[in-house]
């Protein structure tokens, strides 16, 4: 399994992240497993991504740093809940596995995947992109520091070229 996912896990540990909210994505599967197994970390499975945004706010109110994992199609579910982050100046870090871009096969992923960054930016979330494994560690570490130091909302978009497109049988 590729090492950059372990780099992300190391970044979360070094930053002292205690709550990891997620709605599953295959691209995050290994990281999710590692977070569930880690001491001092609580991985919380949610039924919709907007709840992850709200959970992160509650975690911060109680003194916990958090990170939210989701895939790009979940970004559309978060929009109104991001008003909570903006109004209250909550720090937010979300790591988004991209679909609907490089090498995509499933048409239904394309509309959200192609507009993920625009939706985030309109809602006040700063976007960092990662397409190369060697960039992941520095980008995630920087996103964590920046968000917590400046009460900002930051998304790291992990490109489909990095993750590897899901292969489907030929139709």
């Amino acid at each position: 399994m590729s090492e950059w996912r372990d780099d992300i896990f190391d970044c979360l540990q070094e930053a002292g992240v205690r709550q990891v909210a997620y709605v599953p994505d295959a691209g995050h599967a290994r990281l999710i497993d590692r977070c569930h197994e880690a001491n001092g970390m609580r991985a919380v499975s949610l039924t919709t991504e907007e709840d992850g945004v709200a959970l992160m706010a509650g975690a911060w109110l109680g003194g916990d740093k958090g990170v939210m994992l989701m895939q790009s199609s979940g970004v559309g579910n978060t929009i109104n809940m991001l008003s909570l982050v903006k109004n209250c100046q909550f720090p937010l870090v979300t790591l988004v596995t991209m679909r609907g871009e490089w090498g995509e096969w499933n048409t239904w992923q394309v509309p959200m995947g192609q507009t993920t960054q625009q939706h985030f930016e309109v809602a006040g979330v700063i976007c960092y992109r990662c397409d190369k494994p060697e960039d992941v560690k520095e980008t995630v570490a920087t996103a964590l520091r920046f968000a917590y130091y400046t009460n900002s909302a930051v998304a790291v978009l992990l490109g489909q070229r990095l993750i590897g497109a899901k292969i489907f049988p030929e139709d």
């Binding site: 992160m56 706010a57 109680g62 916990d64 809940m81």
Partner: peptide
């Protein structure tokens, strides 16, 4: 008391994150 003035549907997950932290 953390009053929610919007973010409808978010009160329970906010409170859950808080309960886990405290």
């Amino acid at each position: 008391t953390f009053y929610m003035w919007g973010a409808m549907g978010g009160a329970v997950p906010v409170a859950l994150g808080l309960a886990i932290a405290q």
